[in-house]
């Protein structure tokens, strides 16, 4: 009498939780929920400042604490991720991977400043965080993407590329609404070690 050998097939449920592949997570959240939350964040900041220009600083500070968490999460989720040691590597990581996970698309462009060696610019024609925001006349130079600039600063600083990151409105020819440019100014030591 022959006995068939039964192969044991391990089902996902029989695997230990630490052996299971990491879930990618739901990549999208409701835009309205985000818009209301972001709106409340801005109003919260507005109630706690004395002068208009402090608002950007407050928003940026909020972003800075988000940045390192975003970096950790993306590095864990990315396949065969390694630590970025090159300046251009981390910049393109921000331009593509970070932007895709935060906004569902790549940033529109990544450029090196023609004026300064230590400055890089990432621009986005339709910044998601500004989708519903109309600036009042007295705050026309404000860009609420200061929060995003803060996130980028948090990422860069925790990846050992210390930099100052700010958000600016730049008028585009033939368009009614300006685009957002995220200006990254690296600290001198970063430029020195990256010839």
């Amino acid at each position: 009498m022959s006995r068939s050998t039964s192969n044991t097939i391990s089902t996902p449920s029989s695997l230990n939780i630490v052996d299971r592949p990491l879930s990618k997570g739901k990549s999208e959240i409701n835009l309205s929920s985000f818009a209301f939350l972001f709106s409340e964040m801005i109003q919260y900041c507005q109630d706690r400042i004395k002068a208009g220009h402090e608002l950007e600083k407050k928003l940026s500070d909020m972003g800075v604490s988000v940045g390192p968490r975003v970096l950790e999460l993306l590095v864990v989720r990315e396949k065969n991720s390694k630590r970025e040691t090159k300046l251009l590597g981390i910049l393109s990581f921000i331009h593509t991977t970070v932007w895709k996970s935060l906004f569902g698309k790549q940033a529109d462009s990544l450029e090196k400043s023609t004026e300064a060696d230590d400055e890089y610019m990432i621009s986005d024609n339709n910044m998601l965080v500004n989708k519903f925001i109309s600036l009042p006349k007295n705050l026309s130079s404000l860009n609420c993407a200061a929060f995003v600039a803060g996130i980028i600063e948090g990422i860069l600083c925790s990846a050992e590329f210390p930099a100052r990151v700010t958000a600016h409105n730049v008028a585009v020819e033939g368009k009614k609404f300006s685009k957002t440019v995220i200006l990254i100014k690296f600290n001198p030591e970063v430029i020195e070690r990256n010839p």
Partner: peptide
Amino acid sequence: KNPFYEIEMSIRCDL
């Protein structure tokens, strides 16, 4: 959804 709009006040939003 505009953080600079105060509810019940006049609407001045470019967008």
